[in-house]
């Protein structure tokens, strides 16, 4: 049972805690791989992409990779979209990420540190 928020101060304390938790994650050197899971993305095959990423994470025991989801950002023409956030580089957004491309992103960008320029979307 979560503690209820009873005032703006409560809300801000909650927010600080959430912020710290997020900070801790990135400080630990974790990499976030975010799949855009709006309906557009799903229609364009985002579930297959997500499955491929999770498979790869499991297979390669990539414990420091956090796979999460977000909504649609409105770049339908580029779906499926995957974002990679690492501690050192800022956010990189990839478009048209097929399962094949997803695996490459994990191998080359997340593990190898090399951004796949051909699939980067300018946002």
């Amino acid at each position: 049972m979560k503690k209820k928020i009873r005032s703006l101060e409560d809300l801000n304390r909650f927010r600080e805690k959430a912020f710290e938790a997020k900070q801790r994650q990135t400080h630990l050197g974790n990499v976030q791989v975010i799949v855009s899971l709006g309906s557009c993305g799903i229609a364009a095959g985002a579930f297959d992409t997500l499955k491929a990423i999770q498979q790869q994470v499991d297979d390669d025991h990539l414990n420091e990779v956090i796979v999460s989801q977000t909504g649609c950002i409105g770049l339908c023409g580029h779906e499926p979209i995957v974002e990679v956030i690492t501690a050192d580089t800022s956010k990189v957004t990839y478009g048209h990420v097929t399962p094949e491309v997803a695996r490459r992103i994990l191998r080359e960008h997340v593990l190898g540190g090399k951004v796949l320029e051909a699939f980067v979307v300018e946002v």
Partner: peptide
């Protein structure tokens, strides 16, 4: 926030 936050996470929203 669309496409930025995790839509399933209230923490993300509050953040």
């Amino acid at each position: 926030r669309a496409g930025i936050v995790n839509p399933e996470s209230i923490e993300d929203y509050i953040l």
